[in-house]
Amino acid sequence: MNDLPACLRCTRDLRDHEIGRYLCGPCEDQVARALTEIPALYARLADHLHRGSSNGPAVSGSKTAPVPLRLDVLDLQMEKGPVLGVLQGWVRDWEFYGHAELHETDTLQERVAGACRTLRYNLRWAATHHPAIDECADELLAAHRTLARTVTGERPARHVTVTCPCAQPLRITLDTRGITCPSCGTGYGHSDVLRLPLAERRAA
């Protein structure tokens, strides 16, 4: 169990009822929501596999040349891709601790859903006992963001530049969970880095 006073992921100070955990309650809830939504988002990838398609698969019987596949979507569907590969990687890891069981004989969609159920069911244990739960949370949330942006067309988070008190500019997004200033070594959690002043734009 964690003997540090802060969440490993967002670096927020743990409240009294969270002491002993590696992951704070809000971060655990965020991962739980992602695991709940990933299977449905993964299933929708098939509707976006062809370039120019967003509402469904290409119509068969057309005399025109087939629409080329989107390799980025195809990569997301692959067994060792950034979705199922990540999910099964953490299932294997948790299986070592006796808190998961990997199934590799189902369809890819069923394996995604099964991995998400397993990780969701054992998430409370991991938040309290797994010392790499922050790395796991980051990878699962990254997979969820990639899926969501692919099926909804949402643009990636916009980067902004803020300034550390030492005058070092820092590039962040609203999703930045924390950052360490390379100049003075000060570490900022998610809420702290968002409170830093915006960097002044240089004159053209």
Rank of each mutant, 00 (worst) to 15 (best):
Pro39Glu: 07
Thr118Leu: 12
Phe96Met: 12
Trp125Gly: 04
Tyr121Asn: 07
Leu71Glu: 09
Leu45Gly: 06
Ala43Tyr: 05
Arg124Thr: 15
Trp94Arg: 14
Ala43Cys: 04
Ala40Phe: 10
Gln30Trp: 13
Val59Thr: 04
Leu84Lys: 06
Arg120Ile: 01
Glu79Cys: 00
Gly98Gln: 09
Gln77Glu: 10
Ala43Gly: 04
Leu74Ile: 03
Ala113Met: 02
Thr105Asn: 11
Ala100Ile: 00
Glu101Trp: 09
Ala113Asp: 05
Pro68Lys: 00
Leu84His: 12
Arg111Cys: 07
Pro26His: 10
Gly98Lys: 10
Val112Lys: 14
Gly25Tyr: 15
His99Cys: 02
Ser53Tyr: 12
Arg117Lys: 08
Leu108His: 13
Thr105Gln: 13
Gly89Asn: 03
Leu71His: 11
Gly89Asp: 07
Ala58Tyr: 11
Cys27Met: 11
Ala113Arg: 09
Lys63Val: 11
His50Ile: 05
Leu76Gln: 14
Ile38Ser: 05
Val112Gln: 11
His130Arg: 02
Arg111Ile: 00
Tyr97Gly: 02
Lys80Trp: 05
Gly25Asp: 15
Leu119Ala: 08
Tyr97Ser: 08
Asn122Gln: 15
Gln88Phe: 01
Leu35Val: 06
Gly56Leu: 12
Trp125Thr: 12
Ala40Tyr: 04
His48Val: 06
Thr118Met: 15
His48Ser: 01
Pro66Val: 00
Leu74Asp: 03
Leu71Gln: 11
Gln109Asn: 06
Thr64Gly: 08
Ala126Pro: 09
Ala46Glu: 10
Ala43Thr: 04
His130Phe: 12
Leu84Tyr: 11
Leu71Trp: 06
Val86Gly: 01
Tyr97Lys: 04
Arg51Asp: 13
Pro66Ile: 03
Trp125Glu: 04
